[in-house]
Design a protein around this nucleic acid. Structure first.
Length: 800
RNA sequence: GCCCGGGUGGUGGAAUCGGUAGACACGAGGGACUUAAAAUCCCUUGCCUAUUCAAACGGCGUGCGGGUUCAAUUCCCGCCCCGGGCACCA
């Protein structure tokens, strides 16, 4: 009997050995090889690795090891996204500094990551909290500031009136209340540090074209950015002023029978003395402001609004005088905060006009030229041909959009759902915004020589309504000492999404103290070839970091316009009960326990076997399933007992077919079917035996999946060096071919039996095989097929 | 409401340039070994059907209803359900 599979001994031994020999250190490897950059999202050091981390890091490791075995030099770095709120909350609870908590967690998690036995390029690691890292985060911010990409602007924040502080989006509960005190959150305008991401909106959409991403991921980004193509058109008010509206349908301008301003629109306040029914208007404005976002966004409820008595507008196309309303269905934050309303061709306008008895004027025929009554029925929102539109009658909508816009002196333009990115946080545990204010109150960037602009330690970070940094004496003194009396520091820190927007740039040159990364390193490694990550980051992180790369590119600091060539979104591992794992549900699987029990190779293979990687499906954890993987590895462990001198010809063929299948599947991230192919091979090998050469090829095939066990078996077979530095097996097309193949035989399209013939056999041979098959012949009887459909290697269908 | 996924055995899933549906694994049932249990090994396992046990050379079957085709899980049309994202976006 072969010795038993002692995973603890084997895994400990080889992890130590790999580390001591620097097997995965990039600097030790051959620079002449082809380069590949495989990235996984760096974790937040919460203190414990969960099963999701394993799924995120251990399964891509299969691909990484495979690529290395075919001779590619793969960068597979790991680091920590270590700023953020949990550390601050933990520190408040324990009354210590978030740094201590964070550093302890990182140390502990490094040990856990080590237990995976992954081929991480640890020599390239970094952490967002490392001063040598955030020095460059700050430098990039100052570059953006100098070039008007970062600016001090008015941002809308979530304000909790009870806690007296700004609340992050993530802390606002689904019903719009505060996570801590359950009071209703208000939207409040405050001066904020903003990033001009909207300036890049078109590039962010258009450059998706060239990326090798799944179409649904691109769709999600496009929708998030939400580009609407339309026009800005000026409407003259009876009081002299112009109001600019944004519309996607300038072709319907002749049908605009009223206009609507957002209740917050500045002109409403400006004309308070001229508006005859101001008290009604004021009540409506107040009511709007107090409405929770939820209510306002509920489009099923009845339209409300107030007519502005004493003000009218002129439709620039018809010259007609039209009424002006305020209504909360128009948002101040989108477009220009004002719309022209075309009730015949917009559903919302239609509902509003019907309620308020406003004219509905139809200006579009349906596409097929027929007329549909959109006055009394519902709005006809489709495009078509114009009517009741003066000189434009008969023109197509598409053509008319431009023609009418030009006619009235408007401008074709785009509007976006995407807003500028507010990055200031009134928090402690983040990157200090490297800005100081001169005695006149002007914001000035902290020069590079004073970066990193460190986090002061003398603060109290309990939430009090003011940013913790504002209480630091040290920061105040530091600022005055460097810049002079009367200068004051910025006291906000950055959103942690900033930190993770550029980490892939630091990994490649993590020890560089002159630049964030050299052009040479960028040339070698960028863009990232393959980026594995969670679907939840599709619109936030993934968009922010694409923006970051583009902004750096615009300023000439990086060579590429896109950071990630290929993106694979992974699914989610659920608890055994089919629910998302959570402590409150008590369905959390602790990976450490599993590794202790069955070993890292088993856990990794089970995760890979659950289903295809790169599809955003959710897979429930199954205790029986993981036991099956363990059984498989135990049988691999004993396979050496089945080695024979003379190997069956079919066994050799199966080996080569298996190599072909596994190779294809790894390349397509279908690790589940790759493992299944190896199981089929093992089942057969145990029955018929295999030669030593095949045994060793099989071990190499399995090496990326079960790195520890295969290393042990390789060593035991007295082979030289590490199995992970061997060349991945290649299949022999001649040997992988089937000599005979069994195909189905249909009679009139119904499956009636099967025949076994050579894959390339001709029709006559196939028919002979049918005649020699009693059962088939009996079913066919005396009938001579009227028609024969024969697809070699696939099917034979006889029509009688 | 709009956009994107997805519905296949008891379970995870396999098979889509249309060509033997259910690979592989789990679970379940039966058997061997054992004083016994665990482990291991072997066999069976989509559903239905003969007035008894057993079950095909029978029938049905990939969410539902149509269609195209010699042949449909796969393609087309119309629905239903589940998951995710966005949402009075002009």
């Amino acid at each position: 009997m072969h010795k038993k599979f002692d995973h603890k001994e084997i895994e400990g031994k080889w992890q130590k050995h790999w580390k001591e020999n620097g097997n995965y250190d990039l600097n030790k490897r051959d620079d002449s090889k082809e380069k590949e950059y495989v990235l996984v999202e760096w974790p937040y050091p919460s203190g414990n690795l969960h099963i999701g981390h394993w799924y995120a890091f251990a399964v891509p490791d299969i691909y990484v090891r495979y690529r290395r075995m075919i001779g590619t030099q793969v960068l597979y770095p790991m680091g920590f996204d270590a700023f953020g709120l949990p550390a601050e909350n933990a520190a408040i609870k324990r009354n210590n500094n978030p740094r201590e908590w964070t550093e302890q967690n990182i140390e502990y998690m490094k040990g856990q990551l080590n237990s995976m036995g992954n081929a991480f390029s640890w020599d390239k690691t970094t952490s967002s909290t490392d001063p040598e890292y955030f020095k460059w985060t700050q430098w990039m911010f100052t570059e953006f500031f100098k070039n008007n990409i970062a600016y001090r602007g008015e941002g809308v924040v979530n304000w909790c009136p009870s806690c007296n502080t700004v609340i992050a989006n993530e802390q606002v509960q689904a019903d719009g209340t505060c996570e801590r005190c359950d009071n209703l959150i208000e939207k409040k305008k405050m001066p904020q540090w903003m990033i001009r991401i909207t300036d890049f909106a078109d590039e962010l959409i258009d450059d998706l074209e060239g990326l090798d991403w799944a179409e649904h991921i691109k769709d999600a980004q496009r929708n998030w950015i939400g580009r609407s193509e339309g026009a800005l058109i000026d409407f003259k008010l009876s009081l002299g002023e112009q109001v600019t509206v944004f519309t996607t349908r300038p072709d319907t301008l002749f049908g605009a029978t009223y206009m609507v301003l957002a209740p917050e629109h500045e002109l409403v306040h400006k004309y308070r003395d001229k508006i005859k029914n101001w008290s009604d208007v004021e009540i409506y404005i107040t009511a709007t402001r107090q409405k929770a976002e939820q209510d306002r966004l509920d489009n099923t409820k009845e339209k409300t609004g107030v007519k502005l008595e004493g003000i009218t507008a002129t439709n620039p196309a018809t010259g007609e005088e039209i009424p002006v309303y305020i209504a909360d269905y128009v948002l101040a934050s989108y477009g220009t905060g004002a719309i022209m309303a075309v009730p015949a061709h917009d559903e919302r306008d239609h509902a509003f006009a019907q309620k308020f008895g406003i004219d509905i004027k139809q200006v579009i025929y349906q596409d097929d030229g027929t007329f549909r009554d959109s006055v009394n029925l519902s709005a006809n929102i489709g495009q078509g041909k114009l009517k009741n539109s003066g000189e434009f009658d008969g023109m197509d909508s598409e053509e008319a959009k431009e023609a009418i816009t030009i006619k009235v002196g408007g401008k074709l333009t785009n509007t976006y759902r995407l807003r500028d990115w507010s990055i200031g946080r009134q928090r402690y545990w983040g990157v200090p915004i490297p800005i100081v204010y001169d005695p006149e109150g002007n914001a000035r960037p902290v020069p590079l020589e004073h970066l990193p602009w460190k986090l002061p330690e003398d603060v109290d970070f309990k939430p009090t309504g003011v940013p913790p940094l504002s209480k630091s004496q040290e920061l105040k003194e530091r600022t005055e000492k460097i810049f002079g009396a009367g200068w004051t520091p910025e006291v906000e820190t950055m959103d942690t999404f900033v930190d993770s927007s550029w980490y892939y740039l630091r990994y490649i040159d993590n020890k560089n103290d002159k630049e964030f990364s050299s052009k040479k390193a960028q040339k070698t490694w960028l863009p990232v070839d393959l980026y594995f990550g969670g679907a939840e980051h599709t619109t936030m992180h993934l968009l922010y970091s694409r923006f970051w790369q583009k902004a750096l590119h615009r300023l000439g600091h990086v060579e590429h316009k896109e950071p990630y060539t290929r993106r694979i979104n992974r699914g989610l591992i659920l608890g055994p009960d089919g629910n998302k794992m959570s402590k409150s549900k008590g369905n959390v699987i602790d990976p450490d326990e599993q590794v202790e029990r069955v070993g890292a190779d088993t856990v990794k293979m089970y995760l890979a076997f659950m289903g295809p990687y790169g599809e955003t499906a959710n897979y429930p954890w199954d205790m029986g399933g993981i036991a099956g993987q363990r059984r498989f590895l135990e049988r691999v462990n004993g396979l050496i007992e089945h080695i024979t001198d003379n190997e069956d010809k079919d066994m050799t063929a199966l080996l080569h077919k298996t190599i072909r299948k596994v190779t294809n599947d790894i390349q397509n991230f279908k690790f589940n079917t790759a493992i299944s192919a190896m199981m089929i091979f093992l089942n057969q090998a145990e029955k018929t035996g295999l030669c030593r050469e095949s045994y060793l090829l099989f071990l190499k095939l399995l090496a990326p999946f079960a790195p520890h066990l295969t290393e042990e078996l390789w060593y035991e077979a007295e082979e030289k060096g590490s199995i992970h530095q061997q060349t991945f097996p290649e299949f022999d097309p001649g040997l992988a071919k089937d000599e005979m193949v069994t195909i189905g035989v249909q009679i009139n399209g119904k499956m009636r039996g099967e025949i076994t013939i050579a894959p390339g056999a001709d029709e006559e041979t196939a028919l002979t095989a049918v005649r020699n098959n009693d059962s088939l012949q009996a079913k066919l009887g005396e009938n001579k097929p009227k028609r024969v459909i024969y697809v070699p290697g696939r099917i034979l269908n006889l029509i009688v």
